[in-house]
Design a protein around this nucleic acid. Structure first.
Length: 230
DNA sequence: CCAGACGTTGTT
DNA sequence: GTCTGG
DNA sequence: CCAGACGTTGTT
DNA sequence: GTCTGG
């Protein structure tokens, strides 16, 4: 779950919304897929929150083969603190991933065949952004460079998501940002406690065209509401 | 102890 | 690096 | 997440 | 079936 999302905010929007001290330029995107370079927000101790572009698909520091990053787009929040692939990232390298909304595919049966209807889920409040809870990892390339990668934590569905899908991203509220982002926060149990489905009243959803399925589809038509054809 | 895996999603 | 399986 | 490819050898 | 690319 959460394998596709939209971020059409500008760097200025992110700076304002999340109180960043810096943020790389960003061109609006409506169909961001794993392996893309995406902006994450992390806390630079003693300085403040910064935006940084990293690759979506976590490569643990110990990986010999970076292709493991093709699979680690998400981490189950229920177990991430304990799994070898995510443990050290959960302890020390947490981030937020800003999004205007995300996509989920709803399996619906039509004439005894399963069809997948994509939905777009966005904040109820106009102009608001989601902040997904994410993890970071730094991997040393054979060439001697450092490749920073990320993944999105997932959790069970809230009431809005239940009809659509059985997983959703962990979405944090502004009052939780500091606790989550502080790399020196040693309270793993407290961090675990943040890993909950968010209040369903904060989100709204509508179906979109299956044109989104194609990873190369781009533009605001990706989030245009459609009638469900059944 | 060493060797080998280390993950999620969805689908069967 | 750290955990699980043998 | 879904779509689309999935291979080698040798030659240009 | 499984991996890579978008």
């Amino acid at each position: 779950m959460c394998g596709r999302y939209a971020l059409n905010a500008t760097a200025g929007d992110l700076i304002e919304h999340f109180g960043l001290i810096s943020c790389p330029e960003w061109n609006a995107r409506y169909n961001i897929a794993p392996q893309s370079s995406i902006p994450v927000i992390r806390l630079k101790p003693g300085a403040g929150r910064v935006g940084q572009l990293v690759r979506w698909g976590l490569i643990p520091s110990w990986a010999k083969d970076p292709s493991i990053g093709n699979k680690l787009n998400n981490a189950r929040s229920e177990t991430a603190a304990d799994k070898p692939a995510f443990r050290s990232s959960f302890r020390r390298h947490r981030c937020l991933i800003p999004a205007n909304g995300f996509y989920e595919w709803q399996a619906i049966e039509v004439e005894a065949k399963v069809r997948k209807q994509p939905w777009y889920i966005h904040p109820t409040e106009p102009g608001a952004l989601f902040a997904f809870a994410g993890l970071l990892a730094a991997w040393n390339t054979p060439a001697g460079d450092t490749l920073v990668t990320t993944c999105i934590l997932t959790t069970g569905p809230n009431a809005l998501m239940v009809p659509i899908h059985d997983r959703m991203p962990v979405i944090l509220a502004p009052e939780q940002f500091d606790t989550w982002l502080d790399p020196d926060n040693p309270d793993v149990d407290g961090l675990r406690g943040l890993m909950q489905p968010c209040d369903p009243d904060l989100m709204a959803a509508y179906p979109v065209s299956p044109a989104i399925n194609r990873g190369s589809a781009e533009g605001s038509e990706c989030i245009k509401p459609v009638e469900v054809v059944s």
